[in-house]
Design a protein around this nucleic acid. Sequence first.
DNA 1: CGACTGCTTGAAGTAGATCAAGACGTGTGG
DNA 2: CCACACGTCTTGATCTACTTCAAGCAGTCG
Lengths: 256, 256
Amino acid sequence: MTINASPVSFAEGGGSGPCLGCLVRAHGVCDCLDATDLKIAADLSRRVVYPAGAALALEGLGAPQVHNVRSGVARLARSMPDGRRQIIGFALPGDFIGLSAANPPGCAIEAVTDMTACVFSKHAFEAMAVQRPHLLLRLHHLAGTELHAVQDQLLLLGRRTASEKLASFLLHMHRRWRRIAATEAESQFVPLPMGRRDIADYLGLTVETVSRTFTRFARSSLVGLVPNGAHLLAADDLQRLASGGSPRASGHGADT
Amino acid sequence: MTINASPVSFAEGGGSGPCLGCLVRAHGVCDCLDATDLKIAADLSRRVVYPAGAALALEGLGAPQVHNVRSGVARLARSMPDGRRQIIGFALPGDFIGLSAANPPGCAIEAVTDMTACVFSKHAFEAMAVQRPHLLLRLHHLAGTELHAVQDQLLLLGRRTASEKLASFLLHMHRRWRRIAATEAESQFVPLPMGRRDIADYLGLTVETVSRTFTRFARSSLVGLVPNGAHLLAADDLQRLASGGSPRASGHGADT
DNA sequence: CGACTGCTTGAAGTAGATCAAGACGTGTGG
DNA sequence: CCACACGTCTTGATCTACTTCAAGCAGTCG
């Protein structure tokens, strides 16, 4: 039950500048740093490898560290004493966890897949940030984006039906992945490395409902299901569904 | 139907320093400003009176202004094309709307009661902020708090039952009001100036369910209902209810 | 005083939860 | 290689918490 994998860390600061070759730099906070500052950041951070299931931070304790995801996917979750869990968000490559992002006093952070991240001491990172208006502004901007995203999530959780939730989720993830992997910009494929349980806890549903809704989507040829992902076969129909375009009448002819 | 009340604005900058006497200053962003900066802020802002129902900002358009609530209550809401609405939050006296708070690209902002606010041009306010580390830090801190609050709301909307939602809401509002009106620190009274509809849209429920749940609480002597408010008669029971204390007592230790 | 609007209460309906098997891998060990 | 256990995903049957529909009721305001 409890996956107790321990992270493998290896300091890599001071090398020939690991950040310069960072594949996700353009999408993250580090984009606004010049070569000099990148060097400083590299010295301040350590590259850490987390196996799937590892905990980067425990719920309740404010993490003393901030993370910059290089590869893999993490989930931020908050849960209730009786086990009910709400996933606050998924952190994809390039995402920054801990400051602007979500984790003020306590959100559990766990690796969904094997992942690598740049880890800074929160304190040191903040100290660096206050010196650099560029970076501070970037963080402020990220906080705004974050806030907006989480508001959408409020609307989704409070007012959308199961189908609308799942459709929104697929489109949302598709957009996020596409931003990262510009190579396959045209691809209608959405990687879904997280399990059904995670999706359910993200959308405020049960696994069964998620599974059933996926099946219904597949039967209506809205999506093609494959292990760890989905192909969006009718993105515009999904879009209409997501925004409540066809309220209440979801049956696309394919009944029984 | 459409309440089209227009705000009454009157510039008051430059007077004998209206901010110094501001009753909510200690709770808001302005707390970190000294007399000189307060004067500058006063010159930058105008005091505006909004009647209940007035719109401070429309959904979809990024508001070009930021608001500092002096008195009264506002609601931030986002809604779907078919009318379903989710209230993102309520702004109480001392709350700051627009920057750290919620309103990046578009949340409708409406006055729940008659209210007064200090209104800044977003641009001018930001310009002032970047010059003042104190203020910027305060805003950053506020953004963190905001983010944390909204995460709680995600958990509430996604995983809590109607009773748990309402109990949480009452306790949450009680805490917030108490922080403002230090005078009545001991009071178990919670002002609820917003209507049932607003509460329902905040909690992801219907008016009927909110009303029924209130009635049930009142019958169980958990709360005493009065117009525009409630007395918390058994705050600890409510607290237990809010955190999911009641379901399946004891139970065999299923987890490790 | 009657129209309006917001709150409450009741009865009926339903989306999604819960309970309960099966199907499908996937890894382990013989 | 198979046999077995284990976890995730799917599917079906039933149940229920909340919604929807439909009145009543109490302030409020012209």
